[in-house]
């Protein structure tokens, strides 16, 4: 099962630039009518926009990758002490961005895998898509720009999100395939944000999978 090729059915990339959540709300007005985004984090808004474009169904697994999660919320929650904010506590948990996106429509999903890593995060996200056996997978990822955690490299310095809807054996925008029998020795990590931009620019991507002992390639039509 893991040796199959995925077709990229849809791809979304959002550049959140240097905005904070309050500034970002106007940017995503088309996705969030009225005041529906008033309690959402910046990453939550971006991931929600990705899901609106990609779709979500109960039986389609969702895999979400983020190294830092919602850094702005995390910082604000810490700064809310000693009167800790319950709303910010909820959005400081790692998978909060996806939950913010799915809860308003009460969209249940059977299987949801929020993963994190400092190294090879994009590769780990892709390799785990291969390990899920369903015909389709929704892969989401992104970061939210922090403030006081940025200079000490414990938060992302930029906000972005991306999403891929993948189907086994389809004929979409591109393919994700495995390249075996080539050593992974000396594999160099590429920044998560750079790989996300490569999706937007339809650049070829080649990342190492230490679980599958293979390189994962993305090629575009």
């Amino acid at each position: 099962m893991s040796k199959q090729t995925f077709s990229i059915e849809s791809v979304v990339y959002l550049d959140g630039a240097q905005d904070k959540a309050a500034e970002a709300r106007s940017r995503y007005k088309e996705f969030y009518p009225g005041r529906s985004a008033r309690r959402m984090t910046h990453l939550g808004m971006m991931i929600g926009a990705c899901i609106q474009k990609l779709g979500a169904e109960k039986s389609v697994p969702v895999l979400y990758a983020s190294a830092f999660g919602e850094s702005e919320s995390l910082e604000r929650f810490i700064d809310s002490f000693p009167q800790a904010s319950p709303a910010l506590f909820q959005s400081s948990i790692h998978p909060s961005a996806v939950e913010q996106a799915l809860i308003p429509s009460k969209q249940a999903v059977d299987r949801f895998y929020p993963i994190t890593s400092e190294r090879f995060l994009f590769a780990k996200a892709l390799e785990n898509c291969f390990l899920l056996e369903e015909e389709e997978v929704v892969l989401l990822g992104g970061e939210e720009r922090g403030d006081w955690l940025v200079p000490v490299e414990l938060a992302s310095g930029e906000s972005f999100a991306f999403g891929l809807r993948l189907r086994r054996g389809g004929d979409g925008l591109g393919t994700i395939s495995l390249e075996s029998d080539v050593s992974l020795e000396g594999a160099v990590d590429t920044p998560f944000s750079e790989l996300a931009r490569a999706l937007e620019e339809r650049r070829q991507i080649r990342v190492p999978s230490f679980a599958l002992d293979a390189w994962i390639r993305i090629d575009w039509k």
Partner: peptide
């Protein structure tokens, strides 16, 4: 390197 980290509360 084959370490997967999960965080789902």
């Amino acid at each position: 390197e084959n370490v997967v980290a999960l965080s789902h509360a």
